[in-house]
Design a protein around this nucleic acid. Structure first.
Length: 436
RNA sequence: GAGGCUAUGGUGUAAUGGCAGCACAACACCCUGUGGAGGUGUCAGUACGGGUUCAAAUCCCGUUAGUCUCCCCA
């Protein structure tokens, strides 16, 4: 093992500096606001769980668990894993705290970092953030529609323009095994028209062949039997009902009969939300539209029971925050606005500097955002800095003022100065700021 | 897990194998209690480790990281 002693963040992980913070804030604000409106309560689960939880929940054969999990042993010998997704942890909490006996449905949301060990590239990191909404104890398709609507609304709040919801139903444990057989029977005679990966998938996970982007596989799959034609009555009714709700809610959806998802636990509804992607030119000059899913989710009616709880239906989804931010930047969508200070406090000398601390605290209580440079002594430098910050007013507190118990208010654009009594300064500033 | 491209002060950029330079930023001074302009100066770099060569930022190999593609996914 090569020793990585460079003074740098680990691969695929990065610092979020001040300039990016407003984007996160904007997203968290939108998420919290909409969660509150739809009566979701926040849950924070540990950043690590027993590995077993994901092996059982997410699925042992999924890439996420098989190849991408940060798994480790504690000193006490426990096998833990950094969470690669939210759902199993939330399901665990649901069971552990007996939420099946809470008033149903139980609506939970969360956001925070997830970890997957994979090759970083555009919009993909080893530590990344998602926000996640889950609803337990409700099997009506109305709830599926509501979850979709919530994510759609959050992205709209963030000012995304053209959003497309791709939906499909992949059946449940009654009808999917049957469809799988039909699909395999269709694919097997045609396997030599498929790419190598898909030939492998026929055995491992035939549904994923439908997801392949290879052109020759696309050709085969366009002839392939579709899941929605093989749904059992219950799943068919549920899916029809979902589409009606989506129509009613004016959500622009597109039925993608080939949408399947990578995780094992989905049943019935699966969906993804895309933004109209960026157009990229490849070497031959042909244009391909980059579409990476911003949101992915679906229904998982059997998971709670599978993990040891009661038979509780559930539906949920998660959105990738870094991807959303990348697109916000590309489309120049607004981040949160940080109110810039409009006042600067300049002080000269020891005594004024001491008085400054108290004055700053008074201004904070009065909610007047103020900048200072207590580390600087020359008035010239402090004014230069005030100028750079584009404040409207600068307070000047020197020896003379402290002795007279006054302070100077300088209006920066005109250079007018006025001396006011120290105890009046908060009021005087408020007045002036209100005017401008 | 596989592959392509890239790497020069804090940032952005120069340098036919031959003195590592410029701009911005930061800091100080010109100007001791009055900013915006201007001037002077300071700080600071060839990602890391090897190799070729009289001579390497430049060529070669490896590592690391970034970026992109496949895989997979948010």
């Amino acid at each position: 093992m090569a020793k990585k002693s460079r003074l740098q963040a680990p691969q695929g992980m990065h610092d979020v500096l001040g300039e990016d913070q407003p984007y996160f804030k904007r997203i968290w604000d939108a998420v919290n606001e909409i969660a509150h409106f739809y009566a979701f309560s926040k849950i924070d689960t540990p950043i690590a769980e027993y590995s077993e939880l994901y092996e059982k929940g997410t699925g042992l054969t999924t890439d996420i668990v098989e190849k991408q999990m940060y798994a480790f042993k504690t000193k006490g010998g426990d096998a833990l894993a950094l969470r690669p997704e939210f759902t199993p942890g939330i399901v665990r909490a649901f069971i552990q705290h007996g939420m099946f006996s809470w008033p149903q449905p139980v609506k939970l949301y969360t956001y925070g970092p997830l970890f997957r060990y994979e090759h970083p590239q555009a919009g993909r990191y080893r530590q990344f953030n998602q926000f996640d909404f889950e609803v337990f104890g409700e099997q009506a398709a109305a709830i599926d529609a509501q979850v979709i609507q919530i994510f759609y609304t959050i992205l709209k709040e963030l000012k995304f323009g053209h959003l497309v919801v791709e939906v499909n139903s992949i059946g449940d444990y009654q009808c999917r095994p049957y469809y799988k057989k039909v699909l395999v029977n269709f694919l097997r005679p045609r396997q030599y028209s498929l790419c190598a990966d898909c030939r492998r998938r026929i055995k491992e996970n035939p549904l994923r062949v439908l997801d392949c982007k290879e052109e020759k596989c696309q050709r085969v799959k366009s002839q392939a039997p579709q899941v929605i034609d093989h749904l059992c009555e219950e799943c068919k009714t549920h899916f029809k009902s979902l589409l009606e709700f989506l129509d009613e809610a004016d959500l622009p959806y597109h039925l993608d009969p080939y949408l399947v998802r990578g995780l094992d636990y989905y049943t019935k509804t699966v969906f993804e939300i895309f933004s109209e992607g960026s157009i990229q030119q490849d070497q031959e000059g042909s244009q391909t539209v980059q579409r990476s899913a911003l949101v992915g989710g679906g229904r998982y009616d059997a998971l709670v029971r599978l993990m040891g709880g009661k038979d509780i239906p559930a539906v949920g989804a998660a959105a990738g925050v870094e991807r959303i931010i990348a697109l916000m930047k590309e489309k120049q969508l607004p981040a949160a606005e940080e109110p810039a200070p409009k006042v600067f406090l300049a002080q000269l000398g020891d005594l004024p500097k001491k008085k400054s601390l108290k004055l700053l605290e008074e201004l904070r209580k009065a909610k007047i955002n103020i900048a200072e440079a207590l580390g600087r002594d020359s008035l010239r430098t402090q004014l230069a800095r005030a100028d750079k910050l584009e404040v409207a007013y600068t307070l000047i507190l020197g020896q003379r003022e402290v002795l007279d118990n006054t302070i100077v208010i300088r209006k920066m654009d005109t250079g007018e100065q006025e001396t006011v009594k120290m105890e009046k300064v908060v009021e005087a500033l408020k007045q002036r700021l209100r005017k401008s």
